Amino acid sequence: EPSQADLDALLSAVRDNRLSIEQAVTLLTPSSGGGSGGGSMDAKEILTRFKDGGLDRAAAQALLAGRTPA
């Protein structure tokens, strides 16, 4: 399960175009075949909204942490 520091680094990389959204989703869902963790939004949607400015960093982190299976 990614830590808050991992999520923060991942969000920074996506925002700075050092990591594509697809690459980030793969890192967030290493063994689930890329499927959502059952959250209301999947990781790709969360990351896309964050990059487009629709979500701030704290909200994106909380959503990603919340949808990651324990």
Rank of each mutant, 00 (worst) to 15 (best):
A65K: 10
Q23V: 07
R57A: 12
S40A: 12
A59E: 11
D42E: 09
I46Q: 01
E1K: 11
A13F: 04
G38M: 15
E45D: 15
Q61A: 12
A65L: 12
G66F: 05
A9M: 13
E22F: 05
I46M: 02
G38S: 12
A70F: 01
R67A: 15
G34N: 13
S40N: 14
G53D: 03
F50A: 01
S12L: 08
Q61F: 06
Q61S: 15
A5C: 15
E45L: 05
A65S: 10
G34Q: 09
R18N: 06
T26P: 04
L64M: 03
G38A: 14
G39T: 09
E45W: 04
E1T: 13
T48D: 04
V25Q: 03
E1L: 14
G33N: 11
V14P: 00
L28D: 01
Q23M: 09
M41H: 07
V14G: 00
A60H: 00
R18E: 07
G66E: 13
S3Y: 11
L47N: 00
L47M: 03
N17D: 08
A13Y: 04
V25E: 03
V25N: 03
L27Y: 07
A60N: 00
N17Y: 03
S31T: 12
A65F: 05
Q61C: 09
S3L: 13
E1N: 13
A65D: 09
R67M: 15
G53P: 00
R15P: 00
A62H: 12
S12I: 11
S32D: 14
A13T: 02
K51T: 03
L7Y: 07
S40Y: 14
A60G: 01
S36W: 13
A62T: 09
K51A: 04
D8T: 06
L55Q: 01
K51Y: 07
Q4P: 14
V25S: 05
E22S: 08
L10W: 05
I46A: 02
G39F: 08
A13V: 02
M41V: 10
L27W: 05
G53H: 04
A13R: 04
R57G: 04
G33T: 13
D16I: 03
D52I: 05
R67C: 15
D8C: 12
A62L: 08
G54P: 02
D52A: 10
S12V: 09
L55S: 01
Q23S: 09
D6G: 09
S20W: 02
I46R: 00
A59L: 07
I46L: 03
R57H: 10
R49C: 08
D8I: 05
E45Y: 04
S3G: 11
E22A: 09
K44Q: 09
A65R: 10
V25R: 02
T29D: 10
G35R: 06
R18L: 13
A58L: 11
A43S: 06
L7F: 08
D56M: 04
G33A: 07
M41T: 09
N17M: 05
Q4V: 08
D6V: 09
A13W: 05
G53A: 03
N17Q: 05
A9I: 08
A70D: 15
D8Q: 06
D52V: 05
I21Y: 01
Q61P: 00
L27N: 04
K51S: 03
A24C: 05
F50V: 02
A43G: 04
V14Q: 01
